[in-house]
Design a protein around this nucleic acid. Structure first.
Length: 300
DNA sequence: AACCAGGCTCTAG
DNA sequence: CTAGAGCATGGT
């Protein structure tokens, strides 16, 4: 039996909006159950009410590395995660992942005298900027360029199935795949993931990391400008992809990734200019605007 | 069945 | 330094 635990998120949270707001490509929803994976933790959620969620953290039961023939490592005493263990994982991993400490309500209520933004905030109530794993974010946004969101999703899934570790999911009653490590992608044959011309871009990122020329965890303490520059040293990473990584993995909330959609938005509603360039919450504002736009494509 | 996708690199001027 | 072509493939 699946032991769901209910918790109250600090403020409104809308899982359905989060997973289709263009910031993440792996999370899924089926029959009211949401699945999130970060690093080696697999989380299932149900939306109970505006603030309340039911969660289940998958146990770390079976670990099978790709390539290691059918060896199953059962951790001692991992029959089930104790409820304290699950609570701890929620606090340590998942609350930060959902940016649970930040007060979006305050950001939403700041009066910027912007009617269109108000519309987008109403429409996007409950959105959060996720704090995703830097490696996963870097790779997925490298391969996102010139791809539609559905195409990105299937590409990422192929990467995971071919090179990621498996975890047996009690909820789904089948194996699910973690995002692959840099080591697992090092010298890997990436020709069956629909990456097209982006294969050498992904390879360059992976090589820099494995060979120690790029330390993603060390970037955390860099000022934003230097963070962006460090990311852009990777072949195939320009200002837009670097900005996405800065915002979605390093929580640099003042960064606004400028893509075709944001350009359309500035054109249609802001006389062609971005008025939030200096706003410390610009990245969050961007997410409301972006989310509204991709759900009202006919208006743009 | 064309058309375009949460861009970037490289080259030409 | 800026402008523009070219890029591999899948989803609609």
């Amino acid at each position: 039996m699946i032991n769901w635990k209910e918790i109250e998120f600090p403020e409104a949270i809308a899982l359905d909006k989060i997973i289709c707001s263009g910031q993440c490509f792996r999370p899924l929803e089926w029959e009211g159950i949401y699945r999130f994976i970060t690093k080696d933790s697999v989380l299932y959620l149900k939306q109970v009410s505006e603030k309340r969620l039911a969660f289940y953290v998958n146990e770390n039961a079976s670990v099978v590395k790709q390539g290691e023939m059918s060896k199953i490592f059962l951790k001692e005493n991992s029959e089930r995660i104790t409820s304290e263990g699950a609570e701890k994982q929620w606090e340590k991993i998942w609350l930060p992942y959902f940016d649970g400490r930040r007060k979006y309500k305050k950001i939403e209520q700041d009066n910027r005298g912007d009617l269109h933004l108000q519309t987008c905030i109403d429409f996007g109530k409950g959105l959060r900027i996720l704090k995703q794993d830097p490696f996963e974010t870097l790779i997925t946004f490298i391969l996102s360029q010139r791809k539609s969101i559905p195409a990105i999703r299937s590409s990422v899934e192929k990467l995971c199935e071919q090179f990621g570790e498996k975890r047996y999911s009690k909820v789904e009653e089948k194996d699910v795949y973690l995002f692959p490590s840099a080591e697992a992608l090092y010298h890997a044959d990436l020709s069956n993931c629909s990456l097209g011309y982006r294969v050498p871009f992904v390879q360059d990122a992976v090589e820099r990391i494995v060979e120690g020329r790029l330390d993603l965890s060390a970037l955390e303490k860099l000022p934003t400008k230097e963070l962006l520059e460090a990311l852009m040293e990777v072949h195939g990473v320009g200002i837009k992809v670097a900005s996405c990584v800065a915002l979605f993995a390093y929580s640099r909330m003042d960064i606004i990734p400028e893509d075709v959609w944001m350009k359309r938005i500035w054109e249609k509603h802001y006389q062609g200019g971005n008025p939030y360039r200096e706003d410390p919450d610009g990245g969050i504002i961007q997410q409301y605007l972006f989310h509204y736009a991709i759900h009202h494509k006919e208006e743009y």
